[in-house]
Write a protein that binds this DNA or RNA. Structure first.
Lengths: 212, 212
DNA sequence: TATTAAGTACACCGATCTGTTTACGTAACG
DNA sequence: CGTTACGTAAACAGATCGGTGTACTTAATA
């Protein structure tokens, strides 16, 4: 059966190869960019022959797509899966990304590839849409007046922080988090000033609509 | 002196060449990306021989730097120079970019070049800093409580809208403008209601500090 | 043992890109 | 006229890149 593991007969091949290739591209594409990283370099880093690499991925484009796809299977870990946090806290947690978090490879890929039809570009759109959807969902849980709007706004803040951090080489997520706090407080009726364990809403007050 | 114009003995050269090269790179770099546009293509579009191009620009990197530098000599025309607008209106005007406006070549360049030391990357940082400074200045005029903070926040919104527009292929500036309106209203004490949809604020409620 | 699946090492192809060089053209000016 | 400055056109150099082809190795299986 060969199990496709390092298993019975493989000395160091089999399971390792594909994994190593993807893993190497993660680091190289992120650190050096996609266009500036050749397949030779990826193969060398993965300790895999070029032949093998092209047996696992028909083209570099496929590897790039897989590189993005594998990046974050469950969207933004440590944010939406934190059942111990209130919805509001979860929304804010999206802006407390650790510095080690890679800087939005989706934006980078979309810019570098420069082709909206590229599978990686399409996946970048899907990912961004998924993020916004999750934010919207959480905003709804938090009792936001217009969850779609708040979700979209928070997503924009995340992208802004990522882009700005990249260009300025200076962490902009705190600024984004501050804005997020304002938006959240404005969007949730009778927002309890700080961490809200319960969010009852004040029905009557017509607060500031965020336009659109 | 040869005036650097079409000049004494130039038949149709001189002033045209450099201008045409920069102009061609504007369009090509923006439409196709920097890395995907070769010098041959630029020269062809500029109707200039390669020899001449490399006489005006020692390298492609220099041309790229000039491409960014020439992009917007006075930062964001139609925004800060609109003396007929109130400071608050000027702040909001920054989010009403016409669709024809090129989509943040600075972010694109920083990502594409992928080298923070590249002169173009440095210029991108300078440009972004200049934008934030202008926004801060205008925020101060508008009477914002913390102009630096508001300026930085609005700058982040602009970058977020640009990045998101690029990735999603969908104009995100309206969303950013809506956020901006909220931030501005929150940051300016007793905001006099301009023609904004509404900005009356519950009078007694202390406005939410935007925290830093 | 023979086969087969998987992999390595490495040369190679064709395309593309930056940048240079060569050969030639042309117009102003002495 | 000839020189000189400036320009074109096009070949070329050198590098890199994506991707392939070939020959060899290794180890499990029939």
């Amino acid at each position: 059966m060969t199990e496709f593991e390092k298993g019975p007969r493989g000395q160091r091949r089999g399971r390792g190869a594909r994994e190593r290739i993807v893993s190497a591209s993660q680091q190289l594409f992120r650190d050096q960019g996609i266009n500036r990283t050749g397949m030779n370099e990826v193969c060398a880093a993965a300790q895999v022959s070029k032949r093998t690499a092209y047996q696992h991925f028909a083209s570099k484009d496929e590897l790039v797509a897989e590189y993005l796809r594998r990046f974050d299977p469950d969207v933004m870990p440590g944010v939406f899966d934190r059942a111990d946090l209130s919805p509001r806290e979860r929304l804010l947690a999206a802006f407390a990304m650790p510095a080690s978090t890679p800087l939005c490879p989706y934006i980078a890929a979309a810019v570098e590839l420069h082709d909206p039809e590229h599978p990686a570009s399409q996946y970048a759109r899907d990912y961004k849409t998924a993020i916004a959807a999750r934010l919207t969902e959480t905003a709804r849980e938090a009792g936001a007046r217009n969850p779609e709007q708040l979700g979209e706004q928070l997503a924009l803040l995340i992208d802004g922080a990522a882009a700005r951090t990249r260009v300025l080489n200076h962490d902009s997520f705190p600024t984004a988090a501050a804005i997020a706090a304002v938006l959240i407080d404005n969007a949730i009726p009778a927002a309890p000033s700080e961490q809200s364990s319960d969010d009852r809403r004040a029905p009557g007050s017509a607060p500031v609509p965020i336009g659109g």
